[in-house]
Design a protein around this nucleic acid. Structure first.
Length: 238
DNA sequence: GCGACAG
DNA sequence: ATCTTGTCGC
């Protein structure tokens, strides 16, 4: 799929778009149209891989059953890179391909787990929140490294966490969460239509065996395979 | 101005 | 993100 015609091209346009979407974020638990409470049963994981040499991007969307952690469906999308990597503007680089991959699924996920931040962002509109507001889907962000927020080391036991605080406002914008005993924590934040407690709970439910949620692990391996396939055979899709 | 900086 | 060897351990 081509990049949307109205997709921001410059840093100025991207910042204006973040400003427009920021007030639309819902940072508390919400229900589906079907009345299902967060996070629901169908959890999607999305991730993206790049080849800057060939100006190629591959995204994957994987649907898991929240209770069994089984993969029930998966889809990929390949396209041209839409935006350069600029810290704080990651969504403009990753989302076009992610939206294509999500659209290729036959079912709509109850919750989408993103690789990166949601509210824990300099302007409160990280990748996860951006995707949520743009699509209306419930989202949360699980990042592997801290960004610009204060964080203390959580206790060594699984489930232990410490707040991620905005030094300017003192506001809790996310949490450093220990998913595996003695292993580096992950950084969880609200994306859209979910509360921080539920976001953390969901992350822990999805990351019992490994540090990262099963959703992101599956999406990560799938988008890498999709990129390798595209480079091998030309620009394919699924 | 300089360094830091999700993926 | 991606570039990259070996290494320790289940």
């Amino acid at each position: 799929m081509p990049i949307p015609a109205d997709w921001p091209t410059t840093e100025t346009e991207a910042l204006a778009e973040q400003e427009r979407l920021r007030p639309l974020v819902l940072a508390r638990d919400d229900e589906d149209e079907d009345g299902r409470p967060a996070p629901g049963r169908l959890i999607a994981g999305v991730d993206v891989a790049y080849d800057d040499e060939h100006d190629l991007v591959a995204a994957a969307a994987v649907l898991l059953d929240r209770d069994t952690l089984d993969v029930v469906e998966q889809a990929t999308a390949v396209g041209r890179i839409a935006f350069p990597y600029i810290p704080g503007l990651l969504a403009f680089r990753e989302l076009p391909a992610v939206l294509d991959a999500l659209a290729a699924l036959s079912r709509t996920p109850d919750t989408v787990v993103c690789d990166g931040y949601g509210l824990a962002h300099p302007r409160r509109l990280g990748l996860a929140s951006h995707l949520g507001v743009h699509t209306g889907l419930r989202t949360l962000g699980v990042a592997k490294t801290p960004f610009v927020f204060e964080n203390r080391e959580p206790g060594a036991e699984r489930g232990s966490w410490t707040p991620l605080t905005d030094p300017a406002t003192g506001e809790e914008v996310g949490r450093a969460v220990r998913t595996r005993p003695g292993v580096k924590p992950v950084y969880v934040s609200v994306g859209h239509r979910i509360g921080l407690d539920t976001a953390v709970r969901t992350t822990l439910d999805l990351a019992r065996r490994y540090r990262l949620p099963e959703t992101t692990r599956h999406a990560d391996s799938l988008c890498r395979r999709a990129l390798a396939d595209a480079l091998r055979t030309g620009t394919n899709t699924n």
